[in-house]
Design a protein around this nucleic acid. Structure first.
Lengths: 191, 191
DNA sequence: TTATTAGATGAATATTTATTCATTTATATT
DNA sequence: AATATAAATGAATAAATATTCATCTAATAA
């Protein structure tokens, strides 16, 4: 029996934080700036997020979850490994190019101490379906027998770097180039 | 006719800054902490570096230069492309594993606004010999015909990710694994 | 040996910024 | 409508920190 929280504010805060964090990093992020950008009073921020650290951790999980969900949405278990792999890779690459901010944010925090152990764990958990998929490829003898984490690094690494180049404006990605990059990724992990 | 600067202090400052920046990022870096860690008074820092931004920019260039120099030191022009490529790749990978802090620092700042245009330019210039080497491989028809920046991303990307895994303690790199990773890198860019 | 000069010091200053809280406002229930 | 409750506000507070500067110290050169 009172005024309800306006859930749309959470999205506005997330959006503002994402944009500003990429400019400044965690410590450079000003709560007052987030508030202004999200069109709220600073005090209102603290109704939705206990403090700056919590805000970052929740945004991290939110972004990682939305990204992984979007990526896995094209997965069809009836596909062969190769077909599914290509769908997933192209989808992931396209998503990353289209939302480089989300990718950069996730990438920026994954290996830092701003994330709590719990957030890291929860984030890693999201990748489980993908890891299972790759583990199956190894079991089938279609891709190289290596630690799954390493296969993931081999696949993610170039994408991260290439998206950054693209983001900086120093590289234009054509459809043909995309195909070529997929071929390179596949060549590197296939048996 | 006066007391001379103690150049060894620069190294101490660099070392302290590197260690602390990896914990905290640029904005989290406290000049007072740098001074304490380098065993100087805070005021002394400002004798050697005009301010925090200059310190970071100079350290970035210093680290990138030392890394590239160390990498290129194994290059012998008389080697075939393949032989030279393997030497360079293995050397770069080993160096990165041995000095992950240096790698992480460079990687952390390369695509951010803390670096001045000038520092970025100077840093890019250091890679010229490597780019020439790769361009030659393309010309010889040994590796895929693609923008050199993209070939570099394809090669650096996995290394960066794998070094982070190793740094976090979640992956041990054996000599056999190193060979395997080289093979994957080569498979991805060979024609 | 002594004068000169620049390095070294660290407390003080000036600025920035996360978080709190007294007050106001809007909504849901009665 | 009236009331109760929680959201919203933004100025005030408290804490942190980059940089400066008056003072001291040590090395050079005459």
């Amino acid at each position: 029996m009172a005024r309800p929280k306006d859930e749309s504010k959470i999205d506005a805060i997330y959006e503002a934080t994402l944009r500003l964090v990429l400019e400044t990093g965690f410590n450079g992020l000003k709560m007052a700036d987030v508030a202004r950008e999200a069109k709220l009073a600073t005090g209102t921020l603290y109704i939705y997020f206990k403090n700056k650290e919590v805000l970052i951790n929740e945004l991290y999980y939110h972004l990682k979850k939305s990204k992984v969900t979007q990526m896995m949405s094209v997965y069809e278990p009836s596909d062969s490994f190769q077909v599914a792999f290509k769908k997933l890779w192209l989808n992931y690459f396209t998503i990353s190019l289209n939302e480089p901010e989300r990718m950069k944010f996730i990438e920026q925090f994954t290996h830092t101490s701003y994330l709590t152990k719990k957030t890291k764990q929860q984030g890693d958990l999201l990748l489980k379906p993908l890891e299972d998929f790759l583990a199956d490829g190894i079991k089938q003898g279609v891709i190289k027998k290596l630690p799954v984490a390493l296969v993931l690094s081999q696949l993610m690494g170039p994408i991260i770097e290439i998206v950054k180049l693209h983001y900086d404006g120093s590289l234009k990605i054509t459809p043909a180039l995309k195909e070529e990059l997929f071929a390179m990724a596949w060549a590197s992990i296939r048996k």
